[in-house]
Simulated assay, not measured.
Amino acid sequence: MRTNHTLDPAIRVEGIEKSFRDLQVLRGVDFDVSAGSIFALLGSNGAGKTTLVRILSTLLAADAGTAAVSGFDVGTQPADVRRSISLTGQFTAVDDVLTGRENLVLIAKLRHRKNPGAVADEMLARFALTDSGTRRAGTYSGGMRRRLDIAMSLIGEPGVIFLDEPTAGLDPQARNEVWHAVRELAAAGTTVLLTTQYLDEAEQLADRIGILHQGVIIRNGTLSELQQLLPPAKTEYVTKQASLEDVFLALVGDTGRTPTAEERESR
């Protein structure tokens, strides 16, 4: 994980509360996210992760508290916040009728980018989708669709990207593809806030992890800091059996990319 982050947080959340009628979902959430880092918001279903992301992306108003993204107040400067962020929800925003390249060109035009075709080609190459760019997105695998969705979100070079359950429903190989894409985002300087209920996802990706439970962040720290909350580990000699995921990836290959048309035909 990278540790050279700027001093000013890219995301600052202080005392955020949100209720839906009699159900209090967020009870005073506080945390900061350093610029260029990956912050994982870890919690079970119904913990309030998506609600918090909707507030930070200006889609929902908080009942109390304040939040700032890229230095802009979420409540009073929503237009500035929207210009500085991108949001990838739990369900991809890909148009299945269009090709992968056409999806990217469409977004580039909507965001008034110069030379949309060149922008699309650059994103296809960045996310290892060049060989599939002329195929309809409806034929893509889950991992390819998610990578295309993230690529579409990055057009316009947002400084902060929110990924809400980015690997929900994906198989192990597709998850690894998305993980690789997320690491590349942070390596390029993008601040990533991702929500997840998968412990291994937070462990593999995050610089810092916030555990959201019953509407509050009950712990926030690096993986090492969180591990220190438990008693020291005992040294035991055990035989470790390969997991089903290990077997699956060993059999199908964990390349982190989509095979080319020639590779597929040779199989």
Rank of each mutant, 00 (worst) to 15 (best):
Thr239Tyr: 10
Thr88Phe: 02
Ala181Ile: 00
Val160Lys: 08
Arg82Ala: 10
Arg111Phe: 01
Arg136Gly: 10
Ser19Leu: 05
Leu41Ala: 07
Arg183Trp: 09
Thr255Val: 12
Thr195Gln: 01
Asp200Arg: 11
Ala181Tyr: 03
Arg2Gln: 15
Ala174Pro: 13
Val74Ile: 06
Gly15Tyr: 04
Pro232Met: 08
Gln24Phe: 00
Phe39Asp: 00
Gly256Ile: 12
Thr130Cys: 05
Gly253Thr: 00
Thr260Leu: 02
Val119Tyr: 00
Thr51Val: 05
Arg126Lys: 10
Gly221Cys: 08
Ala202Val: 08
Val105Phe: 05
Gly48Lys: 08
Val182Gly: 01
Leu56Trp: 05
Arg146Leu: 06
Ser57Phe: 06
Gln241Asn: 12
Arg2Lys: 10
Ala61Leu: 10
Ser266Trp: 08
Leu163Gln: 02
Phe72His: 14
Gln241Pro: 05
Val247Asn: 09
Ile55Trp: 01
Asn45Leu: 09
Met152Phe: 02
Leu129Asn: 02
Ala67Phe: 11
Gly117Arg: 10
Gln77His: 14
Gly169Glu: 02
Ala242Ile: 07
Ala67Lys: 09
Val74Arg: 03
Ala188Gln: 14
Asp171Asn: 13
Val160Phe: 02
Gln228Met: 12
Leu223Tyr: 11
Ile209Val: 09
Leu193Gly: 04
Leu104Asp: 08
His112Ser: 14
Gln77Ile: 07
Gln227Phe: 12
Asp32His: 03
Gly15Trp: 04
Pro116Asp: 02
Glu225Tyr: 07
Ala206His: 05
Thr235Trp: 07
Ile16Phe: 08
Asp121Ile: 03
Ala242Tyr: 04
Leu170Tyr: 04
Thr222Leu: 14
Ile211Glu: 05
Val182Cys: 12
Ile11Phe: 09
Arg27Ile: 09
Tyr198Cys: 11
Thr258Lys: 01
Asp171Trp: 04
Arg208Cys: 08
Phe72Met: 05
Glu201Gln: 09
Phe31Glu: 07
Glu245Gln: 09
Thr191Ala: 13
Arg2Cys: 07
Val25Thr: 15
Leu60His: 03
Val160Leu: 10
Glu262Gln: 14
Leu251Gln: 15
Val81Ser: 15
Met152Asp: 01
Ala233His: 06
Asp96Glu: 15
Asn45Thr: 07
Val252Ser: 10
Thr92Arg: 02
Thr190Ala: 06
Arg146Lys: 07
Thr190Phe: 13
